[in-house]
Design a protein around this nucleic acid. Structure first.
Lengths: 391, 391
DNA sequence: TTGTACGCGTTATCAC
DNA sequence: GTGATAACGCGTACAA
C-alpha cells in the first residue's frame, strides 16, 4: 500500500495504485472512488534548509508515492521491479534532473569505481602518454581515473598513497619516485587485498602485477646498433643505482657488449640522478678526461637531447665524432638536429596494459595471481647514430 | 558520565572518569573504588561483517569509553575539547591506525576539498605545465586536484563535467575543447553558485573568473619582432575561428601590422583546426601559390615546429628565405634547428593564477565578483627569426 | 567539556 | 513487486 494522501478525503489507508497514466503512477481512493496522479512541481514539502538541494531518490519517491528502495531499484533496473515502474521512475527522475550522488553510492557500496594513479611527474611525454593509455582502458570499463604526482619525492608519494587509499579509490597503479626505497606504504594496503599494479619503476619486494618496458632488451638493441655503426667505446649514462629500470637498462648495454666480445670498461659507466645538470656533468667528465669515447648511450631521452645540444655547442660533430642514442623516443627526438636515435618503449601500450592488469585483478578477485608483463618496443634509428650513411 | 562497564561489578552507572594514565583515559568505579583503563587490542566487540574493516571513530570511541562526537571533535582540535582528551584520542587513533573516511566526511560536510580540472589534453607541455601550476597552489591550500581530459571532444567534456559535479568536486577549473560551442553544461552549475574558473579557452557568455594569456599582446610582440627583422609579407596560421584565443592572437597580429602601416592581406590569413595535417596543408598552399611570403607566424608551437621541419625538407632556408615564429614556447622549440622564436606565455603561472582565483571565490563566498586576469609572458627570440645576425 | 540523536544519499536486508 | 529500516562513517545542533 502506498503512503499517499487522497486529495479529497485526505486519508492514506484508502489509496490504491491504479495503473499508469502518461508514464505517471496513478492512484485510486477506494472511498471517494477518485482517480488522481501526483504533481511534484508545485509543492516543496520540506523547504530543505539547504539552498541548492540536489534532487535525491527521496524526492523522487515522495513525488511518486513510492518507497525509496523501489526508486533505487527501478533506477538500477533491478530484476524485481516492473517495467512500468522503471519507466515511470526514470521519467520523473529525468524531469527532476536527478543525478545520483556518487559519494553516497560509494559510501554505501564501499566501492568507488575509481583507479588512483601515482607517477613521478606528468610534464613529460613519457608519463603523460602512459596516463592516456590507462585512461583509455579504464574508462571503457566504466572506471574513473584519479591522478597524483609525487614530483619524485618519497614523502609526497606516501602522502598521495594514503590520500588515495582512504576511500578514494578501489586500487592503485603506481610508478615509484626515484627516491623511494622503502615500500611500507604499499605493503600495508596490499595486506588488505587492495589491487595494486606497478609499472616502470616497480618494487621487487612485493607480489604485485607489474608492467615493464623492454628495459634490458631495448638497451641491448640500442647498444648493438651503436656497435654495428662501428662504435667500440660506448659510454653509458644510467640513473640512480637502486632503481630496477636503471639496472635493467645497463644490463642490456652490457649484454650487447658481451655478444660482440667488447670488454666493458667500468670507466665508461656512469650514474646520474636523472637531472639535467647531473647528466651534463657526466658529459663534461667524459670530455675532460682522456678516455676515448665514440658514443654516448643515455638511458633516457630528456638527458640525451641535452647531451646532443651540449656536444654541438662544444663543436663536436654528431654522429661523425660521437654517436648519441637513448631510450624513450620522446617526440622531441624527431625534430632536433641531428634527430635522435632512440628505443621507442611504447609507453601508451604500457598504460593500457597496466589498466588491463588492474581490471583483471578486480575480476578474478580471490583467485588472482600476480602477473608481470613486458611491453614490446622498437628501435627508431635516426641521424644521431647513422654513420654509414655519411661514408 | 561515560558508558563504560566496571570490570568488577559490571555496572555502568557507577563509573567515573578519573584523569589520564600514560595518555589513556582512566576510570574509577565509585562502588568498587577500583581504578582501571580500557584495553582495546584484545576485544573485538562486534566482528563487523566486513573483513577489512577500517578503524572508525566509533572504534576509537568504544576503545576509550568516549562518545563518537567527542572523538570527532578531539581529532579535529575543536576548541571545546580538553587538551588531554585530544592527546589521548590522537594517541589511540594512531595506535589503531585510524584514517578518516573522506567519503563520509564529504557526504556529511557536503564539501569535497577537491578541485576538478578539465582540459583538452594532457600530453602537451602547454597543458601539463598549467596543471602543475594549479596543483601547486591548490595543494598548499589543502585542496586535492582531480584531472580529466576531453580529447578535444565536446561530448567527453560534457560527460566529464557532470561526472565531476555529481559530488566529486567543490568546483571546476576548465579549458573548453575546441569543439565546444554551447555551454549549457557550465551554465546549469553556475546557477547553483558552484565556483567555476575558465582558463585559456574561455566562455564569453558566462560570468566566471577567467585567466587569459597575453594572446593579443603576445602575438603583437611576435609580429612586431618579425617586422623589425625586415619581414613585410607575414602569413598567419590561426586556429578555429570560433575560439576566443584564436581571435585574440590574430588580433595582435593585425594590430602590429597596423602600427607599422602594413596593409593586412586577407590572402595571408589562414585558419587551421590545430591538427598537424591541417597546418601543413596551409603551408603547402602558401608555397604552391605565387603569393610572396617572407614569414610564417603560427599561433601555436606544435604547429610551428612541424612547419619548420616541413620547410627545411623542401630546401627553404630559415630564417634567410622565411622566418618562422609562434606562440607557446614549448621546450622543444629550444632544441630544434634552427631554434624557434616564440612567445612564452608563462603557462605555469596561468595554472597558479587559475587556482588562486578559484580559492578566492571560495573564500569570498556570497560577495564574490568574477575577475579576469591576464598572465604576462615574454618573447623569446631564437634562430628562426634572427636575420640581422646573419647579415 | 561531553553525550545524544539525527542528517547526509544510497544500497541491502529483511518483511509483506 | 514493494515497503520499512538498518547500515555506511562522520559532523553537528542541542541537551546535559
Amino acid at each position: 500500500m502506498p503512503r499517499v494522501k487522497c486529495p479529497k478525503c485526505l486519508k492514506v489507508e484508502t489509496v490504491l495504485r491504479a495503473g499508469f497514466l502518461r508514464g505517471r503512477q496513478r492512484f485510486l481512493c477506494k472511498e471517494c472512488a477518485y482517480h488522481f496522479t501526483i504533481h511534484h512541481d508545485r509543492e516543496s514539502d520540506k523547504p530543505t534548509r539547504r539552498k541548492n538541494h540536489e534532487t535525491t531518490i527521496i524526492d523522487i519517491a515522495k513525488a511518486m508515492g513510492l518507497a525509496v528502495s523501489t526508486v533505487s531499484r527501478a533506477l538500477r533496473d533491478h530484476p524485481d521491479t516492473s517495467m512500468q515502474t522503471r519507466r515511470a521512475v526514470k521519467k520523473i527522475a529525468e524531469e527532476l534532473n536527478y543525478r545520483p550522488n556518487s559519494l553516497a553510492q560509494r559510501l554505501s557500496k564501499r566501492e568507488t569505481q575509481t583507479i588512483g594513479v601515482i607517477m613521478p611527474d606528468i610534464e613529460t611525454y613519457f608519463y603523460s602518454s602512459i596516463l592516456t593509455g590507462i585512461q583509455q582502458v579504464a574508462s571503457k570499463a566504466g572506471y574513473k581515473v584519479m591522478v597524483c604526482w609525487s614530483n619524485e619525492s618519497h614523502t609526497d608519494e606516501v602522502a598521495n598513497t594514503h590520500a588515495f587509499m582512504t576511500n578514494w579509490v578501489d586500487g592503485l597503479i603506481i610508478c615509484h619516485s626515484k627516491e623511494t626505497k622503502t615500500f611500507d606504504h604499499i605493503k600495508m594496503y596490499l595486506k588488505k587485498d587492495i589491487p595494486i599494479v606497478h609499472f616502470n619503476r616497480v618494487c621487487e619486494e612485493v607480489d604485485t602485477s607489474k608492467v615493464l618496458l623492454e628495459d634490458s632488451n631495448g638497451s641491448f638493441q640500442v647498444t648493438e646498433h651503436l656497435i654495428q655503426q662501428g662504435c667500440r667505446r660506448i659510454a653509458a649514462i644510467g640513473g640512480p643505482e637502486h632503481l630496477y629500470v636503471s639496472k635493467m637498462r645497463l644490463d642490456g648495454y652490457l649484454r650487447a657488449l658481451k655478444k660482440y666480445n667488447i670488454e666493458p670498461d667500468p670507466k665508461l659507466i656512469f650514474h646520474s640522478d636523472l637531472t639535467i645538470p647531473s647528466v651534463l656533468g657526466v658529459v663534461d667528465r667524459i670530455l675532460e678526461s682522456d678516455i676515448p669515447v665514440d658514443a654516448i648511450f643515455s638511458i633516457y631521452d630528456a638527458g640525451a637531447i641535452r647531451v646532443l645540444a651540449h656536444l654541438k655547442q662544444r663543436g663536436i660533430k654528431i654522429p661523425e665524432d660521437m654517436c648519441v642514442a637513448s631510450f624513450g623516443n620522446e617526440p622531441m627526438g624527431e625534430f632536433i638536429e641531428p634527430s635522435l636515435t632512440s628505443f621507442d618503449p611504447h609507453t601508451f601500450k604500457m598504460g593500457e596494459t597496466a589498466a588491463q592488469l588492474f581490471l583483471d585483478q578486480i575480476i578474478e578477485g580471490e583467485n588472482f595471481v600476480a602477473k608481470t608483463k613486458v611491453v614490446k618496443g622498437n628501435l627508431v634509428v635516426r641521424q644521431s647514430t647513422l654513420r654509414n650513411q655519411n661514408l
